[in-house]
Design a protein around this nucleic acid. Structure first.
Lengths: 209, 209
DNA sequence: ACTTTACTATACGGTCAAGTATCGTGACGG
DNA sequence: CCGTCACGATACTTGACCGTATAGTAAAGT
């Protein structure tokens, strides 16, 4: 095994550089897509020379996969005062819904979806990794919560895997498609109403009484 | 006004050619995306020379828009025996759900979504036209049915615009994302269960009783 | 026949971008 | 201080591809 601080002769690599490259590449790829992003533009925007970039990533596709590998999953990160209380599913699902919506409205996340959809069939590995660590993980998180709520007697027993998928799906309707097409995002008020409507629907179907 | 059979001097245009061009361009654009599709490939696959293509469409983007302009909306086309009966919403929503799912599973439709998402911000007009004639029209169709069902006393009164969006959204969850990423489509049995689960959810929330 | 238009085939110009090669400089270890 | 590696700058090679130009053939009207 190579030591983490393996002292090789010569100048060591500057880890900051790779970060700058991936940052710039993220912006470019997620805004413009794979094909429309040029390595020269990444070099210019990151301030790192193209040769150095190629010393880290042998090809453009490799840089792309490194960008896709970046995760930022904040849906289940809780602020103070917000808890995933199994006994209050309506309130908790509202919190989850708001978080999920905020996630899906982020330019970076929409860009990631766009670029990966466009890469379907071409970048199979990147797509598969994204699905596992994105949608599947989120559905699993919601499912875990639903299981707790059912166990606590706050929700009717049901197939929680299906229900978790359904709950999140409700946020991917017209307003989401509209935003994905670059036709404008809904206002915060509209999104708040959407959360309310979706939680209402869900609670009517799966709530007690 | 020019007569439909305006007899101009010279050889008339062969309408079949344009159809072949759009067919070939559809396959290419919807499979590979805009950037990865070359005009030479369209010419080769359609059997129409590149010069002729450019005599119909001044630019690649124009051909792209012509392809996007093609519609095939079969959700509300009814076979014999299937009706949109306002008094039986569960059965009718199952029919609509099956149709919608069949539509969303079609390679051509998934390709269209992929390529338009990728074109967000670049091909604004094509995106806007698609949204109006695709999602918005479908939601409107479902809404019209829900209005009828509410009027017939078969569904509880509610915001039918929101509910229509919710109903269709339910089909855009994990399995749809998985398919859009090129990771494989669900089996017909899974899709049938999805329709059942979504209709159940919807009827629990909005059904009478 | 003659004109006019549609179409094919092919080659070309120009641009853009991926990846490489070269030279020079800076940083670190021994 | 010297070898080694990291990095910048820049020019270059190579190929793809959009859009056009040219020359010739096919099909229609007059």
């Amino acid at each position: 095994m190579t030591e983490p601080t393996l002292s090789r002769p010569g100048r060591p690599r500057d880890p900051e550089r790779m970060r700058r490259v991936i940052d710039a590449a993220s912006r470019q790829f997620l805004e413009q897509g794979f094909e429309r992003t040029s390595m020269d533009a990444v070099a210019r925007e990151s301030g790192v020379s193209k040769m150095t970039i190629y010393s880290y990533f042998p090809t453009k596709a490799a840089l792309f996969e490194a960008v896709i590998g970046q995760r930022t999953d904040t849906v289940f990160d809780l602020d103070a005062g917000e808890t995933l209380e199994p006994r209050a599913p309506a309130a908790t699902l509202s919190v989850i819904g708001r978080r999920f919506l905020a996630l899906m409205r982020a330019d970076e996340v929409m860009g990631r979806h766009r670029v990966l959809f466009a890469a379907a069939g071409i970048q199979h590995e990147a797509c598969a990794a994204f699905f596992r660590q994105g949608p599947e993980k989120l559905i699993g998180g919601v499912r875990d919560y639903l299981d707790q709520a059912v166990a606590a007697g706050a929700l009717r027993p049901h197939d929680t895997r299906v229900a978790a998928d359904q709950f999140l799906s409700l946020f991917l309707g017209g307003s989401h498609i509209r935003a994905m097409l670059g036709l404008g995002k809904p206002s915060p008020e509209e999104d708040a109403r959407l959360v309310q409507a979706n939680v209402d629907l869900f609670m009517r179907a799966y709530g007690m009484l």
